[in-house]
Design a protein around this nucleic acid. Structure first.
Length: 709
DNA sequence: GTAGGGTTAG
């Protein structure tokens, strides 16, 4: 048969059908129709398959035996084209079925994530139709046991496989090894593997993957070295697995070695292998290698595109990740749910609300928005972009949720200082029977800290977590430090840190440092700052905080000392940068500079706003200004802080009912914080600022952080 | 005519 189907030609099936319908090529024999149906099934060409199906109905040849084989071919066609319900209808209408009919349908359910349906069919086949299962059936049934984690049924199959002698059949044996590996019965897997002389790479791959999937990296490496000892030749799947292992370990050296070894062999570098290599380089921080590999691979599909986007994302190149999307579309590659998840996360890291909105619409158009990972990424994007209401809307409308969905919403509310809402979501999570994990409790304990619920926080840590079986980590203990600190119990917080035997990290100490600053416990603060500086000598934030504390005590010697220390250690203060999205443009404001084209109008507006809020109680925090200048000038410096410029510009350019969303690179300063509260009140606007640590919702003269950040 | 191991997310 000549090659008729050119890739990408939508008329190809029609042309082929026309060709087949010409007299001399008319489907006359059984062989012809079955052969073409197989081609249609293998190429997933549903249109072609349906044409043949129609032909068969018209020609209506009814001998039962040929009917069975043809219907089996049709079942296989619909199954491979993901039309299991059509396949089931055909199956149900058959007057007589044979073992192939059953196995074709079972394979369909297996590959469409209905493993349990396969086990049900298996029972009916044996009990109702009294058919003896063959090696095809057992391979499929064992795979279904793997997918659904039904070890008991799998073991029963093992017994039957031993009795029938099918254990010597390679596919059956592999399915058995895979079943034990997936269900983490490694001894069972190794037993079957070693029982039969000679090795099989498929079984070895199953064992290694089973171990890796369950986090047993050490044992996986042991099996790999066993393979080296036994001179088992690695195939492309082994390489995919090992690159995955290197990626997880972030072990570049091993990755390079394996890549080098692969290049010396004849192993085919298909889309799976190339994606695994890109992923390995991306996760090991080698974005340049990842890009190079992506550029030179011929086999690019949606996964390799998505993997390279993820490599950019993982290494902090969010804009580059987003830019790849249009390039991918230009090559005619359709995104999948993973693509959207990564793009939305990139957009989240830029707080690019507008871009995120467009991606949301795009995901909806592609019919992918109902995937859990897309929903989760949407919640993450909206919370990080400052639109918590939109996040909640996505959350409420999700058809299916998992633990990560709940976590995203709980920690989202917590980051926005909405502790009550976070705890409500947590209660709902428990009510629907979703099991919390260690991430959930970080969000929950943070919420307790916001609300000052000391006892409740301790209850969650000491009882609920224990009850669920989650070992608290340093991140949870840090939440307790925050909890005590926020409640003003600073001495208790410090004692807690000194008495709990956990390896406290710099984050924990900085929590206590922040607390000392907020509660104006400056001598404690200076003591803690020493610890923080010792742990992280390059953290600018600590030096600034320490300077601030000295300044508030009017201890200018301390301020001078800090500035000298920063100079000596060559630590430069990152300039404050704020940005806002207005319609399609992002406007960037840098403290104390006048690069914006409308700079003078903006400064004028800031002046007006500050004059407007002075009668409401605004007092410029001139003590915080480090410059050696007169007090009036210090007031000027404060008014050029980037977030004030951004707020003023937004007020000039947006309609009066729209909320103002500002993103800032550093922690907000005290002065801007009190100014923002009063500007929100005076102008009757909602102002949402995302700083380096959290969200601040300013409304009616108050902030959601209750002045604690 | 039916069957086995693999890549991307939070």
């Amino acid at each position: 048969m000549p090659t008729l189907k050119r890739p990408g030609d939508p008329l190809a099936p029609v042309k082929l059908a026309q060709f087949l319908l010409k007299p001399k090529h008319k489907i006359s024999s059984l062989d012809d129709s079955i052969r073409i149906l197989k081609v249609a099934a293998d190429t997933k060409d549903l249109k072609l398959g349906k044409i043949i199906h129609a032909q068969l109905i018209i020609s209506n040849q009814t001998s039962t035996d040929t009917d069975i084989t043809r219907t089996n071919s049709l079942i296989s066609l619909y199954v491979k084209c993901d039309q299991v319900s059509i396949a089931r209808q055909l199956f149900d209408r058959m007057r007589k079925r044979n073992v192939v009919s059953w196995s074709a349908l079972m394979a369909g359910y297996l590959h469409n994530d209905h493993a349990l349906e396969v086990l049900g069919l298996f029972k009916s086949m044996v009990v109702v139709d009294n058919i003896c299962p063959n090696e095809y059936i057992l391979t499929t049934v064992l795979s279904s046991c793997s997918d659904s984690g039904r070890v008991e049924e799998g073991k029963q199959c093992h017994g039957f496989v031993l009795k029938s002698g099918m254990v010597f059949h390679q596919y059956v044996k592999n399915a058995l090894v895979h079943m034990y590996s997936r269900c983490l019965e490694i001894e069972g897997a190794m037993h079957v593997l070693n029982m039969i002389p000679g090795y099989d790479i498929v079984s070895y791959n199953s064992v290694v993957n089973g171990l890796l999937e369950n986090g047993h990296l050490k044992e996986a490496i042991e099996v790999l070295s066993m393979m080296v000892d036994d001179h088992v030749t690695w195939d492309s799947i082994t390489y995919v697995t090992i690159f995955g292992l290197c990626a997880r370990l972030k072990n570049l050296r091993l990755g390079l070695e394996v890549h080098g070894r692969m290049l010396k062999t004849e192993v085919e570098c298909n889309a799976y292998v190339s994606s695994a290599i890109i992923d390995m380089y991306g996760k090991c921080g080698r974005i340049i290698n990842a890009m190079k590999m992506f550029g030179c691979f011929q086999t690019r599909n949606v996964v390799s595109w998505t993997t390279v986007m993820d490599a950019y994302f993982q290494n902090g190149y969010f804009e580059e990740a987003l830019n790849l999307f249009s390039k991918m579309r230009l090559e005619g590659v359709m995104p999948n749910e993973y693509t959207f998840a990564i793009l939305l996360n990139s957009s989240a890291c830029l707080s690019a609300l507008r871009h995120g909105d467009l991606l949301h619409a795009s995901a909806e158009k592609s019919g992918l928005k109902n995937h859990i990972i897309v929903g989760n990424a949407l919640i993450n994007m909206y919370t990080k972009s400052g639109n918590i209401e939109a996040a909640n809307k996505v959350f409420t409308n999700m058809i299916k949720r998992n633990c990560i969905t709940w976590n995203a919403m709980i920690s989202g509310y917590s980051h926005h200082g909405l502790g009550k809402e976070a705890l409500n979501v947590f209660q709902d999570m428990l009510a629907v029977g979703e099991c919390p994990d260690h991430v959930t409790f970080v969000g929950v304990l943070s919420a307790c800290a916001h609300l000052g619920l000391v006892q409740q926080g301790f209850y969650y840590l000491n009882h609920l977590m224990k009850q669920i079986g989650i070992e608290p980590g340093v991140e949870h203990y840090t939440c307790i430090v925050k909890l005590l600190s926020r409640a003003g119990q600073l001495d208790e917080a410090e004692n807690y840190m000194r008495s709990v035997p956990v390896k406290w990290d710099v984050v924990a100490w900085r929590t206590l440092l922040n607390a000392s600053h907020v509660h104006r416990k400056y001598s404690l603060g200076r003591r803690i700052a020493e610890i923080v500086v010792a742990m992280d000598p390059n953290d600018v934030g600590t030096y600034i905080l320490l300077s601030n504390m000295y300044a508030k005590e009017r201890r200018w010697d301390g301020v001078v000392k800090m500035r000298k220390l920063m100079r000596d250690r060559n630590i430069k203060k990152e300039p404050g940068v704020s940005w806002v999205e207005i319609r399609n443009t992002t406007h960037v404001f840098i403290s104390e500079d006048s690069l914006h084209p409308e700079s003078s109008q903006i400064c004028k507006k800031v002046g007006e706003l500050l004059a407007m809020i002075k009668p409401l109680g605004y007092v410029p925090d001139i003590a915080a200004v480090l410059h050696d200048v007169e007090d009036e000038q210090k007031e000027d410096y404060l008014s050029y802080h980037s977030e004030k410029l951004a707020i003023a510009y937004s007020l000039m350019k947006t309609p009066c009912e729209a909320p103002i969303r500002v993103i800032k690179n550093l922690r907000m300063c005290d002065d801007c914080h009190s100014a923002a509260k009063l500007i929100a009140k005076a102008t009757n606007r909602m102002i949402i600022i995302r700083d380096a640590n959290r969200f601040h919702h300013f409304k009616d003269g108050c902030c959601s952080c209750t002045d604690y950040w």
